[in-house]
């Protein structure tokens, strides 16, 4: 198992190198920062001085070399827009996105597993059809619409919850629920399908022939077998969330990574973009390793030699 983790780390490192190269050059394709930061009527010689001061005049490969050298001691450079170290900006925004993602994912998983399992107990029954319709609605409703409507209803009309911003726990309620709805609907569908096939399997028949109770059959025999597809889909959804739930963060005014990245791209704030992408990528690599380990724990047939 240790060998497996080391191997995955090495693979991740290779992908990370590719990513660093891609981010560095792609973000420089979006335009020259001097066009953006300086007034339109700036004389050409001032522009040249600006570019030279920030090293934009050097050949790309030299810029890349500097960037790599700094990267080794975790120096991502400074934000031109906010004139603070890029890494600090990203590290401040990251916990917000992470909290949002963890809470939303946990909520989605719990509801989806309970609802999906209930639905699978009697396929095509009344409860199954009801859960099916609700979860399909959940999986198809657009984020931005749901966010705006929920602000309107619960914050503006009812005045139960704050409209946006950061503060006590009540500020998290709407963003977490809005963010959880789509993955929850999708996951409930996956849980349902996966549980139906697990419950119709031969080992469930064996358990019934042994006299095992229905509760143990559903939650011990079937659920563990049904977890693999659930984890796959949940992991995919979770990495989307870590990337920053841009829509939710912007509408609810949460200073998360998604909002930071969007603004930095608008201002060609290369240092922040690079720091943000690399940190998010690290988090996603870690998440994927965790998912692989969860596979191996749940299903002994998966062996990582």
């Amino acid at each position: 198992m240790n060998g497996y983790v080391t191997k995955r780390m090495l693979h991740s490192l290779i992908s990370m190198m590719g990513l660093i190269i891609l981010v560095f050059f792609l973000s420089r394709l979006t335009g020259n920062p001097s066009d953006l930061y300086l007034p339109i009527d700036t004389p050409a010689d001032v522009r040249a001085a600006f570019s030279q001061a920030h090293g934009f005049d050097d050949p790309m490969i030299v810029q890349f070399g500097h960037f790599l050298a700094n990267l080794v001691h975790l120096d991502f450079g400074s934000s031109m827009r906010l004139e603070r170290p890029a890494l600090n900006l990203v590290l401040e925004a990251f916990p917000v996105s992470l909290t949002l993602a963890v809470l939303a994912m946990a909520l989605a998983l719990v509801i989806a597993i309970v609802a999906g399992s209930l639905a699978a107990r009697s396929p095509n029954g009344v409860l199954d059809r009801f859960i099916n319709v609700i979860s399909l609605c959940g999986a198809s409703v657009p984020n931005f619409w749901l966010a705006l409507v929920s602000v309107l209803v619960f914050a503006v009309w009812m005045r139960w919850l704050p409209t946006s911003g950061m503060g006590g726990p009540e500020y998290w309620v709407l963003p977490v629920i809005v963010l959880a709805v789509r993955p929850c609907g999708l996951l409930a569908q996956v849980v349902r399908g996966s549980m139906i096939s697990a419950l119709s399997s031969a080992y469930v028949k064996t358990a019934r022939a042994k006299g095992v109770s229905q509760r143990v059959i559903v939650f011990v025999h079937a659920l563990r077998n049904a977890m693999l597809p659930i984890i796959t889909v949940a992991g995919d959804q979770a990495s989307g969330m870590i990337n920053g739930a841009v829509v939710v963060e912007v509408i609810f005014g949460l200073p998360g990574i998604g909002r930071l990245m969007m603004e930095s791209i608008q201002y060609r704030d290369f240092a922040v973009i690079q720091a943000g992408v690399i940190l998010t990528a690290c988090a996603i690599f870690l998440l994927n390793i965790a998912i692989d380990l969860a596979y191996a724990l749940l299903d002994p047939r998966i062996k990582h030699a």
């Binding site: 031969a202 080992y203 064996t206 022939a209 042994k210 006299g211 095992v212 563990r224 077998n225 002994p300």
Partner: peptide, 25 residues
Amino acid sequence: RQREINGSRIAMVFQDTLAALNPVY
């Protein structure tokens, strides 16, 4: 009552043992 009898008074052995044993326990 059926659960009481199953496994204790009447027991069954199945054909495809790879499928009939739970793979994860």
